[in-house]
Design a protein around this nucleic acid. Structure first.
Lengths: 233, 233
DNA sequence: ACGGCTTTGTGCGCACGTTCACAAGCGCCT
DNA sequence: AGGCGCTTGTGAACGTGCGCACAAAGCCGT
């Protein structure tokens, strides 16, 4: 009773999480003028092993040429299409504090398919200010601006306390994809995606391994293995 | 040929990644004055199911009381100890741009076992500036300040281009744990941990699912399943 | 035209992580 | 003191993802 009949549909989550990494490596190659690449080369550039790369790419079709490799431009197009980056996604950031400022000014958004279209806050000292050529609006204007699916992705960059409230208002306004920077768990109804990025958690995981390295100098659990963990491609 | 003889050692990576989430939920409970909690309650607060929570906690010992639950303070201490948060970890941030500023001013660092002890950059316009009551130093001073393991964790908050160079210098200075915000793959020698946080990747994964939701309105792959994905506790 | 070289695509075995269901154990009430 | 109800801790089944090794297939040189 698994999924079939879909053919090429049903890409594993682990693969989806790696596609952006491949895409970045490919664009870097394209910028250098490379037109063709083998799975081994691309795997090294993306920090994975080549069988995994090939299996990942096979999930979205047979876009390689045996004995030759992959056409860089063509593969960029196919991955972009699969990830839905051929269209532009309007993004709204809620919470224009330190982090919100940095996010609004982050060039990485615009590079590939995303555009920050609105900034929201509730602090009267911030509302009205212009950040990254966008005027910060009051959160109460959310429903108006999000009408008709005008906002696809909401970024929660508030402290933990108001995060759930903000999340609820985003959902009520029709936003179904949320990126959460607040250090708390957000509960959402069915059909809404939440992804969470937490600096403190990452540091704590590093601390765990660092402690292991410091304590068991004579007996690492996996002797001599370089540990490179991908958190978020 | 698995690992034994260690008894309680050898905590699975997936469990380690969730311990910070439990810790945060527990401290929230403690702040509200709760002294005891059941696995079911804590699981809800942490956004997981209770069997998973119990199995995770069982990996670090039998700290619960059957028929009663877990003592909040005691569990906080045990998880903190396991994660290595009973000591303070000195953190250095390299790259004092938009993101570096936000990170330096982020309160979440100090809350639990981490202290930003140094900021580095190479831009003469930034070096010497005081950010979050720390003077920004030139990257050339890294070796001096990192002497004797004075820096445990390095945070790379530079653009992609200089990130590998910065990473190499951190490793050369003795830093063995690196948190990478630059959108690129860092290669490090054995024994060095790298964790990567990439906003753009997270957005692309959201876009993938958003596209699925928009396209296959009549046939979601898993009908009616709320999709809450933990990226980084 | 054909054989050999190179590289992709994939079937299979294995290990990890998750979930379920139940036994073990503790406190409380009678 | 003894039984009962509640909650933890864990063994076993299940599903997913990973890595290997090889077959399928295109290109090139002769």
């Amino acid at each position: 009773m698994t999924e079939e009949q879909t053919g090429r549909r049903g890409i594993p989550d682990a693969t989806v999480a790696r596609l952006p990494v491949y895409l970045r490596a490919l664009t870097a190659l394209a910028d250098r003028g490379t037109t063709s690449v083998s799975s081994e080369e691309l795997a090294v550039a993306a920090g994975v092993n080549s069988p995994k790369l090939r299996k990942d790419l096979s999930h979205l079709g047979s876009y390689g040429v045996r004995g030759v490799g992959y056409d860089v431009e063509y593969l960029i197009y196919q991955i972009s299409r699969e990830l839905g980056l051929t269209q532009e996604w309007p993004v709204a950031i809620v919470g224009v504090g330190n982090l919100g400022h940095a996010l609004a000014g982050y060039g990485g958004f615009a590079t590939r398919g995303f555009r920050v279209v609105a900034l929201f806050d509730t602090d009267p000292a911030v509302v009205g200010e212009v950040v990254a050529s966008l005027k910060v609006r009051h959160l109460d204007e959310l429903d108006t601006l999000a009408a008709g699916g005008a906002i696809a992705i909401g970024v929660v960059a508030t402290p933990a306390a108001p995060a759930q409230e903000v999340c609820d208002r985003l959902v009520a306004a029709g936003v179904r994809s949320i990126l959460n920077f607040a250090p708390c768990v957000l509960s959402v109804p069915e059909g809404v995606d939440v992804r969470k990025v937490d600096l403190s958690t990452e540091l704590q995981i590093l601390a765990f391994h660092e402690q292991r390295k410091s304590a068991g100098l004579g007996a690492p659990s996996r002797p001599g293995s370089a540990r490179v963990e991908e958190v978020a491609g």
